[in-house]
Design a protein around this nucleic acid. Structure first.
Length: 453
RNA sequence: UCCGGCGUAGCUCAGCGGCAGAGCGGGUGGCUGUUAACCACUAGGUCGUAGGUUCGAACCCUACCGCCGGAGCCA
């Protein structure tokens, strides 16, 4: 019977004939037999293979070094060793693909920086195996969370012609030859085109038809930002809900974060425990707190008051009308409240044109959800649904309404209050694994000056 | 893009003006129901690149490249 290592380790009873295949992590030879640790990626742990000298295939044992791929058939039996419940007594071995002495992964730990330089091999390490199994499970959980609540998934375009969505520099998409000075009318789309920085505006059109929608896909930013929390290509989750105000939007965001955290705690336990042991010793305690504690919620104005009243020495000034800096956000969530915090109602001057103007005429219905260790995990808002107010806001932000005729149309035909937010999927992964660099939670990171693999 | 730090063996690092080093990993041999096994031996180097200072540079200076941390922008 062909078994994954995960299935073999979870077996309830011995088995006379099993077949496993995977990669050798380590081998220890005795005179008359060898121990092999076999890992196939199905789970964190490997299974111990006991191979007596002389069985079919044992002539190749010396080639079954760390990194080699092999197939093993034999019996699944209780282990005599104290560190595992089951092991396989091999009846035959088969070397599938050897790995010579240049194989770069050792049995012992490597730095994350080195593993980044061998991104094609790092999923074979314990940490990256765990991170990418969690990433997969969380991808599934995102869809489950929204589908269970009646949301419709929308595939918004990756190529867009809106050239100023207010979310940073964009990559241009063109088929024109390099250096050509051809007008955009002669380009592939008959105009300038770019990789999307957000599916929000398109998602709004679908929310104003299907009610509750979400997008979950890659987005692109051509910002030259060189930090551990930014990538040029990253995945974003963007729900958009019709007949929804900011309070309900914040409720959804909080439920969403809690659901993601509970998912990894219950469905990725072994991998999360590995992260807790080797990445961040506070991880499980923090995630448990997040799953169980209500999030704090306060206005931007109250947040500024708290920051001004604190004796904490901030590098940047705190003043109403200025953006909260990273150090301010982290003080609120890590030091002051010691739990996730949602800050809402920001001054209209520091937020984009599409956010709904509040009755005070000074603030917009925006919210940022801040979490310990990461800072901003979610940014969202109630959208401006009143055509005249939206047009005034566009004018204030120097946005040409003609470029957004389809967006303003939504306000002309059956306009409704609606709201949504964006959650960076990699930021979420950093938060639930404790991994400190975005390059280590995405399979092949694209950052300024770096697109190897 | 700005500020700071770091580039020495496959990996992690020490050496900081006078013979190029250690641990791990690799190879060879031994030993052992072992499990980051253990013991012995052994191979392995353009000290990031280019220039400069000096009798002499891995070490001091300059520029560039790369990486890391922080900041800005944001998710």
């Amino acid at each position: 019977m062909q078994l994954s290592v995960k299935a073999a380790l979870a077996s309830a009873s011995p088995h006379d004939a099993v077949l496993l295949s995977g990669w050798v992590r380590t081998r220890r030879d005795a005179k008359s037999f060898s121990f092999l640790e076999l890992n196939d990626g199905s789970c964190l742990k490997g299974i111990q293979i006991v191979a007596d000298a002389g069985i079919p295939g044992s002539d190749d044992l010396h080639k079954m070094t760390t990194g080699a791929s092999i197939a093993v058939s034999g019996k699944l039996v209780p282990s005599q060793g104290s560190e595992q419940q089951w092991e396989v007594h091999a009846s035959s071995l088969s070397l599938i693909g050897p790995a010579d002495e240049s194989y770069p992964l050792q049995k012992k730990g490597h730095s994350l920086e080195f593993l980044r330089s061998i991104a094609h091999l790092r999923p074979r390490s314990n940490l990256f195996g765990a991170v990418f199994r969690i990433r997969s499970r969380l991808t599934f959980a995102v869809h489950r969370f929204f589908q269970e609540r009646g949301f419709v998934n929308v595939h918004t375009p990756l190529i867009t012609a809106s050239d100023c969505e207010g979310a940073g520099e964009m990559f241009r998409v063109t088929t024109l030859p390099q250096g050509a000075n051809t007008p955009p009318e002669q380009d592939f789309f008959g105009r300038n085109a770019f990789l999307t920085v957000s599916g929000q505006l398109e998602a709004e059109t679908f929310a104003c038809a299907l009610g509750k929608v979400y997008t979950f896909g890659p987005t692109f930013r051509a910002e030259n930002s060189n930090t551990s929390r930014h990538a040029a290509e990253f995945w974003m989750i963007e729900p958009e809900v019709a007949f929804c105000d900011l309070a309900a939007d914040m409720d959804l965001a909080e439920a969403h974060v809690k659901d993601m955290v509970r998912t990894v705690l219950s469905e990725c336990r072994e991998d999360i425990e590995f992260c807790n042991r080797f990445v961040d010793k506070e991880l499980i305690a923090r995630l448990t707190m997040v799953a169980e504690t209500p999030f704090q919620r306060l206005t931007y104005e109250d947040a500024v008051a708290i920051l001004k009243a604190s004796s904490h020495p901030f590098e940047y000034p705190v003043e109403y009308g200025l953006n909260l800096q990273s150090e301010h956000e982290r003080f609120l969530t890590e030091k002051h409240f010691k739990c996730p915090v949602t800050v809402y109602n920001y001054p209209k001057e520091i937020k984009p044109f599409y956010m709904r103007l509040n009755d005070d005429d000074r603030t917009v219905a925006a919210m940022d959800l801040l979490v310990p260790g990461i800072g901003e995990l979610i940014g969202g808002s109630q959208r401006e649904e009143r055509l005249d107010v939206l047009l005034a806001s566009m004018a204030r932000h120097n946005v040409n309404p003609d470029d957004y005729w389809w967006y303003t149309d939504l306000r002309k035909y059956g306009s409704v209050p609606h709201a949504g937010y964006g959650m960076g999927f990699e930021r979420l992964l950093m938060f639930v694994t404790g991994v400190g660099n975005i390059r280590d939670v995405i399979p092949f990171a694209r950052t300024p000056g770096s697109a190897e693999f």
